[in-house]
Design a binder for these strands. Structure first.
Lengths: 261, 261
DNA sequence: CCCTGTTGGTTTATTATATGAACCGATGGT
DNA sequence: ACCATCGGTTCATATAATAAACCAACAGGG
């Protein structure tokens, strides 16, 4: 593996749940020598991608990531464009809306929005990397990836997160076909017990599926009427985000969604 | 130089004015071999920090920077916290407000806000790296850096951007002392002709000056009354941003600003 | 107070890794 | 048909990354 990849792997260790990491921890987590880790972090820090803070000299992400993000958003405003739609979706459905995008072959959380309606809401703060096979967003996105990508995902070990998580490859392939045919993915309790969700794929300017939009609710609240509402709202929001990204909805999907809504 | 630094240097080549760069250009700009550049970019792309787009296979910043920024803002909300204050400052003064932060030893633009009042406004879109000696923000920040840092900046060649850009080291040191004594920096035409500006330093939780806040106006509009208004508003906004960053205003500055306002 | 196990940081010889010149096929202009 | 460019690839060479060992400093525990 290249040195650069090792350094970037270090960056990936920072999560919402673990925002501050000391040198030794970092080396252990990444499985690299402490001296190596030190040198890599020094280089990252020089560039401002990480910074050392406080007495423990722990590291955290630095200000440079902000600048890069501002630059990226100025050119390709994905987050800024999607946020209002995401919030409107949460409000309209009264549930938690969730936006994720493909980064380096993994589906990662970009933002979420909560409705003010319910006291009990599905929180997804900690879900940073979404398993494709166990989430509606994951299935929605995976269904519209190239066959090679799907094969790679399905070839890897599929973790069983709850008692009802589907891990059978054949069954998952059948579900993917279903998602392709309906333009929408549904999931019940596969990621977390008692949580049901629906998701749609999002497309970029190249026409490639690069993210997913989902609405998650407590399974007890997922009545037929609520499902109809969510389906109608999420397809509308999905189309809106895709077009706001300069993306083009595949014609097949556009007709599917129009028929439902 | 380490390999990682070379890769990160490549990232730094992307600017608002030059958001898309081809492989050969990239190699030329960075002064590295094309093969090396290719390998580095491939590694960066694998991580999602850059992506290839369109027919020319040009590169641009990738979605991973977004994710990192979201993570950083969740822990240290610098931009989110400062934006409303920045906009209010622009509105209150009727001029262009500008926020910059220290990244890797350079002062870089993070955000700006325009007032709706005037038809002619000072645009600073393209200023990505602010020269310390020629801008009010630069002087405001530099004045509150460690002596070693100041010496390093003043030892480097100081570019003459306009006819009135101060490049004499002794004179600049005198100005820095003046900034330290007043808690505010002023500049007239040193960066761009006919543009005057005032700036204040911003401090982080460690009490270190890590950024600057400025208001820029056409010199013709910078009347004594307007200067008083800007001075009053910018110190208030500066204090607000600093505290919203969890920072502590140095007591000396706090009293200076209170006396003026 | 010593003992032990941390921590962040530094040094060293060893070797794995990055490098750059040359080459390739494709593309676009003249 | 030509020439210059493009993105991408190859491979011998040499540079730059590595890992173990070692610091000094700190924090409990007995």
């Amino acid at each position: 593996m290249g040195t650069v990849s090792k350094a970037l792997e270090l960056l990936n260790l920072f999560t919402r749940a673990r925002p501050l990491i000391g040198l030794s921890d970092l080396a252990r987590l990444a499985g690299v020598n402490k001296a190596t880790c030190y040198r890599l972090m020094t280089e990252l820090a020089e560039f401002g991608l990480v910074e050392q803070i406080g007495t423990g000299r722990e590291y955290r992400l630095g200000p440079a990531v902000l600048r890069l993000a501002v630059l990226r958003e100025a050119q390709v405003p994905m987050r800024d464009a999607a946020m209002p739609v995401l919030q409107a979706l949460a409000q309209a459905t009264g549930e938690t809306a969730h936006l994720s995008i493909l980064i380096g072959g993994a589906l990662r959380t970009l933002a979420h929005a909560y409705a003010t309606a319910h006291a009990t809401k599905v929180t997804m703060e900690d879900a940073e990397v979404l398993p494709f096979h166990a989430t509606s967003s994951g299935m929605a996105v995976l269904a519209f990836q190239p066959e090679a990508f799907q094969a790679g995902v399905l070839a890897a070990p599929l973790q069983r997160l709850t008692e009802v998580t589907e891990t059978d490859v054949a069954a998952l392939r059948a579900r993917l076909a279903q998602v392709q045919a309906s333009g929408i993915a549904e999931s019940a309790g596969g990621y977390e017990s008692d949580v049901s969700s629906m998701a749609v794929p999002l497309f970029d300017a190249r026409g490639q599926c690069c993210g997913g939009l989902s609405v998650a609710a407590l399974s007890s609240r997922m009545t037929p009427a609520q499902r109809d509402l969510i389906r109608s709202e999420i397809t509308r929001a999905g189309a809106e985000i895709t077009t706001s990204w300069g993306g083009t909805l595949p014609p097949a999907i556009a007709t599917l969604w129009r028929a439902r809504a």
